[in-house]
Design a protein around this nucleic acid. Structure first.
Lengths: 243, 243
DNA sequence: TCCCCGTTGATACAATTTGCGACAAACTCC
DNA sequence: GGAGTTTGTCGCAAATTGTATCAACGGGGA
C-alpha cells in the first residue's frame, strides 16, 4: 500500500466552518494539511510549500474556484478536487472539462472525500525523484550516484560524466519502462526537445560504450524503435553501509 | 489539445438498452468503442484489444463489477469508471477504495460521462511500453524479451527487432489461438487497421524467415485462411535463474 | 473438376528512425 | 587565459517498418 502521510493537502474554502473541521478530519487520517480562505492565500501556499493536492471550493468571493483550477491545470500544478454546490451539474461538468481531477457535491461525506483524495493521489504520478545518494544495483552493476561511479561484480569499473550519470539515474528510476527521448531530455536536462534533437541518442550511445559488454548488441540499454529507450534490468536498492 | 480518438473504450453493462446507445454516443464523440455484456466478455476484450479505459457497471449478473474492477487494478489494467446505482454511497466508496478512477451514479448525463472520461484520460499517464523480463519456451526456442533474443536448443540464435519482438510476445500470450490481423495490429502497435493494411502480414513473414526451419512451409506461425495467424506451439514459462 | 475471385506470400521500394564518428561549443579546473 | 573534458550538433550509413505490386494459393459454386 502506498504512503500518503508525506503528501500535503491544501484546503481552499471561504467558510471557516467547513475549512477547519475538514482540516482536522484529514489530519486525523494522517495527512498533512494547510488551509486557505481564498484564491490569493491558495496561490501563496502553493508557491511556498510542496502541495500535493488541492481541495477547492468552487463558490468563493473574489477569484472563484474554477478560475484558480484553470490556472493550476495550465501551470501543471497539483491535482484538484472541486467542491461544488449540490445538484449544480454545470459547475461539475465545467470543472472536469477544464481539468479538475475530481469533484464532490456539498454537503459531502468526509469519508468519501478521503476516498477520493486517495484515489486521485494513487493515479497522479509521484513527484520527480529528488537527489538521492543511495546505491542501487542492476545486472551486476552497483551505481554510486554521488561519486558517479559504477562497479561490476566481475571487476569492471567505470567513471560516468555528469550527464551520463543523470541519464542512468533516470533510467534506474524507471526500470523496464520505455522512456521517450522527450521525457528523457526533460528528466535529465529539464529542457524541451527541439526538432531533430539527437542529444539523448548520443548519451545513450556513450553510456552503452561504458556499460554494455558488446555495445553493438545492447542488452541493458535497449532501443524501442519509434518509442525511445529502456533499461532492461531489474533495479534494487543496495543498503550495505559504505564509506 | 490532447488526442483521444486513438483510445479504445470498453463499455461493460448487462443491459443492452444502456450499453448500445452509450456506445453510439461515445463513437459520435470520436472514441473507439467496444462493448461487453458481462465480465467474461470484458476479460476477453481486454485480452485481445488495447483497451484504454473501461466503463463498468457495478451491478451485473455473474461476476460483478467490483470484482472485475479489483482484478483490473491488481493487474495494472486500464483505468476504470464505475457506474453505480443512484444514491448507493457504499458502492461508490468501496469502488474508489479498491482503486476505481471515478464513478458515476445512474441515471447519468452522457455529457458528464464524456467529461469524466476525458478527465481520467488526461491524468492517466500515457501508456508506456514495458520491457518484460519473463523467459518463455516454445517448440525448442527460448525467448528473452529483454534482449529480444531467441535461442533454439539446436544452437540457432536470432535477434528480433522491436516490432518482431512485440508480435512474438503477443502470440506467446495466446498460444494456439487464431488472432485476426486487426487484433494483432491493435495489440502490437495499438492502432487500427486501415484498408488493405498488410503490415502484419509482413511482420509475420519476417518472423517466419527468422524462426521457421522452412519459411515456405511454416509450422510454428500458421495461417488461418480468412481468419488470421496463430502460434502452433505450447508455451511454458522458463524459470531458470539467469544473470 | 474447373474457374473465378478474394486472400496470402514474397519482393521491392520508400519513408523514417537510429548508430555513431567528427567537429564545434560550452564548461572545468588550474 | 588556456588546456583538457564534456556535451550538443551535423551528416551519412545502416536498420527498421510500412506500402505497393504481383504471383501463388484456397475454396466455393457452376
Amino acid at each position: 500500500m502506498q504512503e500518503f502521510s508525506e503528501v500535503q493537502i491544501l484546503i481552499v474554502d471561504d467558510e471557516r466552518d467547513i475549512r477547519e473541521p475538514l482540516g482536522q478530519y484529514l489530519r486525523s487520517k494522517g495527512f498533512r494539511v494547510q488551509l486557505a480562505a481564498n484564491a490569493v492565500e491558495a496561490r501563496k501556499a502553493i508557491a511556498e510549500s510542496a502541495i500535493g493536492l488541492v481541495v477547492l471550493d468552487v463558490m468563493m468571493p473574489g477569484e472563484d474556484g474554477l478560475s484558480l483550477c484553470r490556472w493550476l491545470v495550465a501551470n501543471e500544478g497539483p491535482p484538484v478536487i472541486l467542491l461544488t454546490a449540490m445538484g449544480d451539474d454545470t459547475d461539475r461538468i465545467v470543472g472536469l472539462e477544464i481539468g479538475a481531477d475530481d469533484y464532490l457535491a456539498k454537503p459531502f461525506n468526509p469519508r468519501e472525500l478521503q476516498a477520493r483524495i486517495r484515489a486521485v493521489l494513487r493515479r497522479v504520478p509521484p513527484p520527480v525523484h529528488t537527489i538521492s545518494n543511495s546505491l542501487r544495483r542492476f545486472a551486476g552493476w552497483t551505481h554510486d550516484p554521488s561519486s558517479r561511479e559504477l562497479r561490476h561484480t566481475d571487476g569492471r569499473q567505470v567513471e560516468l560524466t555528469t550527464a551520463e550519470n543523470r541519464l542512468l539515474e533516470v533510467l534506474l528510476d524507471h526500470p523496464r519502462k520505455v522512456l521517450s527521448r522527450s521525457s528523457l531530455l526533460d528528466l535529465t536536462a529539464g529542457r524541451e526537445a527541439k526538432a531533430y534533437d539527437r542529444a539523448i541518442d548520443n548519451q545513450i550511445s556513450r553510456l552503452r560504450r561504458k556499460i554494455e559488454l558488446d555495445p553493438q548488441h545492447p542488452v541493458l540499454l535497449v532501443t524501442d524503435w519509434g518509442g525511445g529507450y529502456a533499461l532492461a534490468a531489474d533495479v534494487e536498492a543496495d543498503d550495505t553501509t559504505e564509506t
